[in-house]
Design a protein around this nucleic acid. Sequence first.
DNA 1: CCGGCGGGCTAATACGTATTAGCATCGACG
DNA 2: CGTCGATGCTAATACGTATTAGCCCGCCGG
Lengths: 348, 348
Amino acid sequence: MAAPPRRVTQRDIARLAGVSQATVSLVLNNRTDAEVRIAPETRDRVLRVIAETGYAADPVARRLASRFNRIIGVFTYEPAFPSGSRDFFHPFLLGIEEYAERVGCDLLLFTSAPVVDGRRRVFHQDNRLRLADGCILLGREIDGAELHRLNRDGYPYVAVGRRDDAGGPVPYVGADYATAVARLVELALRRGHRRLTYVGMGMTAESSEDRRRGFFAAAMIAESARQGSATAGEADTCLDHLLTDGATVAFVEDFATAVALESAARRRGLAVPGDLSIVTLGDPTSPVPTDIAFTGFRIPREEMGRQSVEVLTGVIDGSAAGLQQRLLPCELVEGDTLGTPDPAVDRR
Amino acid sequence: MAAPPRRVTQRDIARLAGVSQATVSLVLNNRTDAEVRIAPETRDRVLRVIAETGYAADPVARRLASRFNRIIGVFTYEPAFPSGSRDFFHPFLLGIEEYAERVGCDLLLFTSAPVVDGRRRVFHQDNRLRLADGCILLGREIDGAELHRLNRDGYPYVAVGRRDDAGGPVPYVGADYATAVARLVELALRRGHRRLTYVGMGMTAESSEDRRRGFFAAAMIAESARQGSATAGEADTCLDHLLTDGATVAFVEDFATAVALESAARRRGLAVPGDLSIVTLGDPTSPVPTDIAFTGFRIPREEMGRQSVEVLTGVIDGSAAGLQQRLLPCELVEGDTLGTPDPAVDRR
DNA sequence: CCGGCGGGCTAATACGTATTAGCATCGACG
DNA sequence: CGTCGATGCTAATACGTATTAGCCCGCCGG
């Protein structure tokens, strides 16, 4: 290991400028308090030496001495490699990077977090959270226990996606699934649908819950409507279920399931939306090839990324300036898969 | 700003375990040299306290005291995620992240680097390079002056893509464009082509140079062949040039140019590869819609990402173990756009 | 001439860890 | 009984910066 050349420090600058290290620090931080005064010529001399040497303060030492690092941690829960989840994370990262750049922060990806029981863990033997001033949590399912721990430790963080309380309110920037789904339900009702069926994934994540809640809340209101529920599995089985149920429209939580359902229907000679309408409740999270323009909504992922950084900076500097829990509206997408129910079937 | 709760330090652990801070550090680092000995029961006591408190060493202090941080910096000359270059960087990042996880390093994206004159700068007023142990440089064109500076400062880094010397050899992991292009030239010659034309971008980047070099070196060898050269611009102009030249095959540096050229040819009633063959010299770097399977090669981007981390770790710990300049082979892609020249045209 | 006061700077310390020289203890050995 | 070598630990210091108490000096007012 070659001895690395000792780098230029404030002491070196101080020696060259004929002042003390403290003075260098004061000049560097442009301190102009009443308490602290530096003569203009001294200041200039120091600045000149700094410019000549190309000195830049060691961010590590700086962080140790003061409090902040201008580093935003990014923790991704789910295995990052399968290209599938990459497409899921990408829009978030886009927004995060953009806003981080704007506020002059670097991004630290906690790739060193080890995988235990198939998921990454924030807390482990040698967790390095403190490298960052705070942390953005990304992942479809986030461990409640870890959120508890974060809250207890008073570590600044923000979740992307709504989260239930965990030993205190969880700061988050989520998508307002409940409202988006409710809007779609209303739309279906207006088009004449009376038998709506929700096809979920059997997941307990908050994002699933919110969709489900939005669906049933809106469907309940229309007393005349009937709702069913199914779990995505084998597409044909699911389709059977829908038909038996007399459903005229399926609200499908997962995009890939919707695609599978549509092809299953087509294989059986059923037209979409002629014989069966299909509504999707989220963007594709894995690349599913399809030419169909599904009716559904778009999750403002990029904006969620941006705002998560915004909220995090608020949490970090304690200015609870912005609301620390935000739900962003989803944009409805008017596709080709929500029609009017076949009158022949719609015998109620 | 709420006073953050002082976090647990080694001193706290020491007090609780009834030992000194030094002992805690020694236990933590599992030091078992001949010089340093800790009684097993003491060690256990300390470890128990650590487990109970959930203590984890502050990586910042650790870095200040010792030398390394287990952080790999990633500097992208263009924004890392934004959509334009997104498809370009993504595979690299994928490989980088994978390998970083394997060696237990975190990744630091230098998003705080300001943009000057349209490109990001490594060195600026308040550069934060020292946060990381070393740095991976990504970008189509990398400023030679900055490479000089990195070399001069002895800062460990590695470029993705071959780079010319800059005040010393530049560690890199690149793609062997020269060989890949030469192979394609040979293939074209075997198929009977005698008039080959290179369509470049007029760029001076090493990646462009290498392709060009590979082309002319291989084409020269076949004394019977003639080569031409054109610069991509308006596709029709370029096509005119090719036809005037009597070229039977175009070697096109940029993927998008190849796509444009193909449609221009088709608009004029020319068949590809019937009347004109087109070879591409790189993957699409921006999403260009096309159904055509171009003949060309694939750049091992992901592998380049992985190996760049590997090389960087070598540079950092000074074990010049691996070669610090690597060129990875590209995989030839046998597409549909390289045929045999029309005999009518091939009058030599 | 002395006290006070403000400007301009420095000495000292803290941040939390890693490292090293060296102290204390104890058993063995001469 | 003194010496020596091992063993087990601690005190002290370094890393590079930020911060604060306070020193020194010159000037002004009395």
